[in-house]
């Protein structure tokens, strides 16, 4: 039982990270129907910028409290990622808004390659380690271990989602976003500045990505210019699983994917009598994804959009 609880905790923490990154994908997709491939790289840049700031602060005075240093790093990383996402949208996506749908997908892949290589030039080819400055408190729940950092990750991602939900549902900007998502033309006619709304969408997604990036690197103790790719892929899968374009869906999809992966890796070997082991963890995750989509083609919480004729 304690093993099961532990696996559940493992999955929830991993899932919270997926969910945070998935929020960015889902917001952009909801409005532009664009898979923003470069979003994973924005997460990576967030982690790298924060690590640089942390490095400088620790270099200047090593006695600063760890939590404060990390928060300072985060406070620099968030605007940096926001500016980056604003630039990406303006340069690589906006000119293609009327182009065929796959064109911006290709530029997104191109931007993703560019960001990776720029990060390699700036931060080097090596894995950068995250200094162990955060408090390492540990708790036991039902025989399972959970650290302060893990709790913080889950709480932060819940808060981010709640904040985002409030923003979309309760503010003027949110209403403009929803209108734009439904129809850019009509929104424009109603006086919504569509370009600005889209920029805001990217910027808000990037801010969340920066938080996710810092948390990922703090949690796993490292950052690397290539780290965004797999993370982005998993997060995108999570967004699709939950129903892309839907904020609660991204959260649900992320958490589910994390738990599926953890339980899959943990139990698949025992379930199949050792025939399939934890090397089929991703197969398991993808199979669940495929099954869900086969029975609910728009994801778990996705709206059943009638095919437009």
């Amino acid at each position: 039982m304690d093993i099961f609880t532990q696996q559940l905790i493992n999955g929830l923490v991993l899932g919270s990270i997926y969910a945070l990154v998935a929020l960015g994908y889902t917001m952009v997709y909801g409005i532009l129907e664009l898979i923003n491939f470069a979003h994973g790289e924005v997460t990576m840049i967030g982690a790298m910028v924060a690590l640089s700031v942390i490095g400088v602060l620790l270099g200047a005075s090593p006695d600063l409290p760890g939590l404060m240093v990390v928060i300072a790093g985060l406070l620099v990383a968030i605007p940096a990622c926001m500016a980056l996402a604003f630039g990406i949208e303006k340069i690589a996506y906006r000119p293609l808004r009327k182009a065929p749908r796959l064109a911006p997908l290709i530029t997104a892949i191109g931007v993703s390659i560019i960001l990776q290589n720029v990060a390699m030039l700036v931060w080097g080819r090596q894995y950068v380690s995250f200094p162990a400055i955060l408090p390492r408190g540990q708790h036991e729940i039902l025989g399972a271990h959970i650290t302060d950092l893990q709790i913080a990750i889950v709480v932060l991602s819940l808060l981010s989602m709640a904040g985002l939900w409030l923003l979309v549902e309760k503010t003027r900007l949110g209403r403009a976003m929803r209108a734009t998502a439904q129809s850019k033309e009509v929104a424009e006619l109603m006086g919504v500045n569509v370009d600005r709304v889209i920029s805001y969408t990217f910027i808000i997604g990037a801010a969340i990505a920066a938080i996710a990036g810092v948390m990922v690197s703090a949690y796993y103790g490292l950052a690397h210019y290539y780290m965004g790719f797999m993370l982005g892929l998993k997060a995108f899968s999570a967004a699709v699983l939950g129903g892309i374009g839907n904020i609660a869906g991204a959260m649900l999809g992320g958490l589910l994917l994390g738990v599926i992966e953890a339980l899959g890796a943990g139990y698949i070997g025992d379930l199949t009598g050792g025939f399939l082991g934890s090397h089929y963890q991703d197969v398991f995750a993808f199979l669940v994804l495929i099954l869900v989509l086969v029975f609910r083609p728009s994801g778990l919480l996705g709206e059943r959009v009638a095919s437009r004729a």
């Binding site: 293609l96 065929p100 911006p104 191109g110 390659i113 560019i114």
Partner: peptide, 17 residues
């Protein structure tokens, strides 16, 4: 690879179809 990425973006921007 950096130039490869730049080429990908530039070509799409100039010839989106």
């Amino acid at each position: 690879m950096l130039l490869f990425g730049v080429a990908l973006v530039a070509m799409m921007l100039f010839r989106p179809a």
